[in-house]
Nucleic acid binder design. Structure first.
Lengths: 183, 183
DNA sequence: GAAACCATGTAAGTTGTTACATGATTGG
DNA sequence: CCAATCATGTAACAACTTACATGGTTTC
């Protein structure tokens, strides 16, 4: 699902400006999606051209006019249609996992640092999601997705805590007996 | 980490052709990374230009020459240097979660279908990873990353099994009470 | 007085996918 | 006989990100 469709989806909930949509991305989707202004603003222009949203300009003192977008009936239909299509596979790119993959090229200290950093980051994301889970104004979908994120992140933390010694130990062995291979 | 760096990483393990690198992506990284020929072949050309790998052409009957790439000492240093840099954040794009986010716009049947599909897919990926976990020739990093994937996917399956009723029920509320049976 | 927030937008650059181009061989 | 595997590569396209451009206001 591209940024354009996601913007349309957020506009099914309430009218909003590009700036507000960016904030919505950050507080609620940030753990599995993100978007920059450079993709949001063009997306909103395009949706307007296509008649899926309308734009109302609110003049403001000494600031660019605030452009408030509102979804049209056609836009709502288009979005529901998009939701109906079978979703594509998740795409995950994790520098962390890619690095761990080659743990045998790193020192035990480097691996420990890497995992410490990951745990800190994951715990802080977890804390953020738990805060979000408390907000009762959220749509049912939001709450489910937040709970999903919490479940996954908890599993990650548990895994790292319980198994980190395995990979930290493996590094100690370096190029262990039998690894005379490719050189 | 881009495809170019990842190719370099795979070549720290053994020499390989572009075709073989594609296979390596599929059997071992596919749950958190993927790459097409369209990115692998140019990446290998570029690595060769930069002197990080060398290329040996093996002529084959009635097929394009097989080009076997081997990492150079400079390449190995460059890769270890890349591993040392702090990893960026994970990037996840999940059409499934994006769709669930707007569950209130879908019928209970659609949501159930969506979750059934997700469970099937996740279980099949899980089975694949469990097969991979059995392979004893894997590097320590591979095994750790595979186990990591298994832990996360198990948490996802458990979450969906235990909590799906929450979101399936929420969809019921989005429609006129009593009209659920007619859907 | 610095940082963060509000507010929009464009242009250049990155990174990657899909489709095209070519074609033999092997297994079900 | 059809699909998959082997084998490489290019060109067009897609979708985003980053940096640039502009500038007042509020909060620490």
């Amino acid at each position: 699902m591209d940024v354009r469709t996601l913007c349309l989806g957020l506009l099914t909930r309430s009218e909003a400006s590009g700036y507000e949509i960016k904030k919505a991305f950050q507080s609620g989707l940030s753990h599995f999606y993100d978007a920059s202004f450079g993709s949001i603003y063009p997306a909103l222009s395009r949706l307007t051209e296509e008649g899926l949203v309308t734009c109302k300009e609110e003049p403001q003192d000494k600031r660019p006019d605030k452009k408030v977008y509102r979804i049209t009936p056609a836009g709502r239909l288009a979005f529901i249609d998009a939701l109906g299509r079978p979703p594509g596979h998740d795409r995950i790119r994790s520098d962390f996992l890619a690095t761990i993959l080659f743990a045998d090229l790193l020192s035990p200290r480097q691996i420990a640092g890497l995992i410490d950093g990951r745990l800190t980051e994951t715990r802080s994301l977890l804390a953020e999601l738990r805060e979000q889970a408390k907000e009762e104004t959220r749509a049912a979908g939001d709450r489910f997705v937040i709970a999903y994120g919490i479940a996954v992140l908890e599993a990650e933390v548990t895994f790292l805590e319980e198994r980190r010694h395995v990979i930290e130990g493996a590094a100690l062995l370096g190029r262990a007996p039998g690894s005379a291979a490719a050189d």
